[in-house]
Write a protein that binds this DNA or RNA. Structure first.
Lengths: 127, 127
DNA sequence: TGCATTATACGAACACTTTCGTATATCTTT
DNA sequence: AAAGATATACGAAAGTGTTCGTATAATGCA
């Protein structure tokens, strides 16, 4: 199942921090943002995510520990496809061109991307 | 203002087809998809978009003609930023690497991207 | 033991978006 | 002119996601 916008920011915390408690996640969310989000709001969201299978949770202690059940890479892949479809009419390359054109990538990153492309081109030639 | 998911698909029709009537848009939407969407649904959505300023409309004739008011490039830029933030933690290059890794780009497209990168690198050297 | 703190569970309110029924006006065709 | 087709306007239901209040249980400490 697809994570919603709100669920996604929670997943990001879990992906970057590893298994966490509701309180930890909630504090991370409020640290970044100006508008505080209630503790029970985060709790509810994470409970729903557990029901959906987006996260797993260890309930052996009173304070439950949640972990992302959806791998980051898989989620990104799915969301990327949908995003490219809905806002770039399905053309990944047009999206990439736009992204790079924004000047958000460092020289090192550009070099890495170039390297990947060269690699892809070589793979294409061989098999 | 940000277009919603539904508004975005309508904008795509307007971007690709140019100024259109509600009926035209509605038929385009139903052509692609299996689940038919009602005429008045599309109408209502486009009326709301007109209120928000996402589209302009010519009401000089009985059958109104709608045109995208938000340029495609600008919308893509905004949406891209948000997407990169929420699902790639703000790293455009990680997103690009993932997109290209999916193998959705043709050799020609890869070459074009490479060309752009080279161009960006040269710009960086000069100024 | 008794009080303050901190957990989870859960229902319900809210907000936002989508969907469509119905009223009404305007064309078109006979 | 009458009937049918087609247009907009608009209210309201339905769907989805988010937010939080409150109940209840477990924990820690004076």
């Amino acid at each position: 199942m697809q994570p919603t916008e709100g669920e996604l920011v929670i997943l990001q915390v879990l992906w970057s921090s590893g298994p966490s408690t509701v309180r930890t996640v909630n504090e991370r969310l409020n640290a970044d943002s100006d508008k505080a989000i209630g503790y029970t709001t985060t709790l509810k969201l994470m409970q729903l995510m557990a029901e959906k299978g987006l996260v797993s949770r260890d309930t052996s202690n009173r304070t439950h520990v949640y972990a992302a059940a959806l791998p980051e890479e898989k989620a990104q892949k799915t969301l990327l496809r949908r995003f490219v479809d809905t806002t770039f009419g399905g053309s990944a390359s047009r999206m990439v061109l736009r992204a790079l054109g924004e000047g958000k990538a460092s020289p090192e990153e550009l070099a890495e991307i170039k390297r990947l492309i060269t690699q892809l081109e070589n793979e294409g030639n061989h098999g």
